[in-house]
């Protein structure tokens, strides 16, 4: 847990809107607007935020399913955002992804064994070895190895997600990006999949970037947590620190909105008004000031930078 496995700095993704084949785009949408963080090997960084805040886009840029507009993504020191197709293909062995929807992320016309074998075959591993490794991957994620001949529609949601995990594990990556891996599953199945992920981390030392909107899940699995709002990280801290003593008003509101596990437990209600502003026309200065309970006129002037407050905690707020 010392060296930085993944080092993201100044990551941006801007989409051009209203453009066409012969038309110049007139507006831009800043889905991700300057995100920086690091993940050490064997560590889990939770990435939370409401819908549309750019967490999934960030996740997809790290595995380069989405091209970056600006910024760098260093994996073991090498910037992958500028790699050519061939070099990137080899780098993919280090970073894998698990998708949110266990139904649409498996090709319905391929057998389970072939789905898990695909990454191995892509990198020229011989037939016999593919067979034994697929069997051990099935075993590792808790699927019976005689299920290899089944089709995805013959599995349950949880089993399908296990298949997705087996596919991600096949290349023995150092980092797995989990893009809301349990939000499509039942609560009981969620727990099984989360436990599987933590077991794998303990046994294989894999690092996770865990994207989610369920705070309970994030609190359970993460070592550190980053909170995103409108394409920026507003607060990042150790799990314990962030959940017990949130500093950014958005983090405070987010934690207050999470349902507590005890029905009679009284909680301080901190409600935000309105919707998140459109990322095509974000507010001037601090992006959160339009909904912030403690905003002051000065907040409209400059975008707050992520400042170090000590104890491994960083907050982007003028007033904290």
């Amino acid at each position: 847990m010392s060296t930085a496995l993944l080092e993201v700095s100044g990551l941006k993704k801007h989409y051009a809107l209203d453009g066409g084949l012969f038309r110049k785009p007139t507006r831009t949408l800043a889905a991700v607007d300057g995100v920086s963080f690091t993940i050490s090997s064997g560590e889990t960084l939770g990435l939370v935020g409401e819908s549309g805040c750019g967490k999934s886009t960030t996740a997809k840029m790290i595995v380069r399913l989405t091209e970056t507009t600006e910024g760098s993504i260093r994996i073991c020191g090498e910037d992958i955002s500028t790699l050519g197709a061939g070099a990137m293909r080899h780098k993919r062995r280090d970073v894998q992804i698990i998708f949110q929807d266990p139904y649409s992320s498996l090709n319905p016309r391929m057998r389970a064994g072939d789905i898990v074998a695909e990454p191995l075959r892509n990198f020229g591993i011989g037939r016999e070895e593919v067979r034994t490794r697929v069997a051990s991957l099935f075993d590792r994620v808790g699927l019976r190895s005689d299920y290899v001949a089944r089709f995805p529609h013959e599995f349950s949601g949880g089993q399908r997600q296990r298949l997705g995990i087996a596919r991600a594990l096949a290349l023995e990556p150092k980092l797995i990006v989990c893009d809301e891996p349990v939000s499509a599953l039942d609560v009981s199945v969620q727990a099984q999949v989360i436990n599987l992920l933590t077991d794998l981390q303990r046994e294989l030392g894999i690092a996770y970037l865990f994207v989610a909107h369920d705070l309970a899940v994030v609190e359970h699995i993460s070592h550190r947590v980053a909170v995103m709002y409108l394409g920026r990280i507003v607060e990042m801290a150790d799990r314990q620190t962030l959940f017990s003593d949130p500093r950014h008003p958005y983090t405070q509101a987010l934690l207050a909105a999470a349902p507590s596990s005890h029905p009679r437990q009284k909680k301080e209600r901190l409600l935000l008004c309105g919707d998140a502003p459109s990322p095509t026309s974000p507010p001037s200065g601090c992006p959160f000031r339009t909904r912030c309970p403690i905003a002051e006129p000065g907040c409209a002037e400059a975008v707050p930078a992520l400042r170090d407050l000590g104890e491994g905690r960083q907050v982007a707020c003028h007033l904290r």
Binding site: K60, V63, L65, R89, H90, R92, R93, Q96, I97, F99, Q100, D101, S104, S105, L106, N107, P108, R109, M110, E118, P119, N122, F123, G164, R167, A168, A170, L171
Partner: peptide
């Protein structure tokens, strides 16, 4: 745009194999 095509890219499947293995059969 299906996630399983993204998944194939993520595990390093080449473009022509994505066409043959993932797009055409469907």
């Amino acid at each position: 745009e299906q996630p399983f095509v993204d998944a194939a890219r993520a595990v390093g499947t080449r473009f022509h194999m994505i066409l043959i293995r993932h797009i055409m059969p469907n």
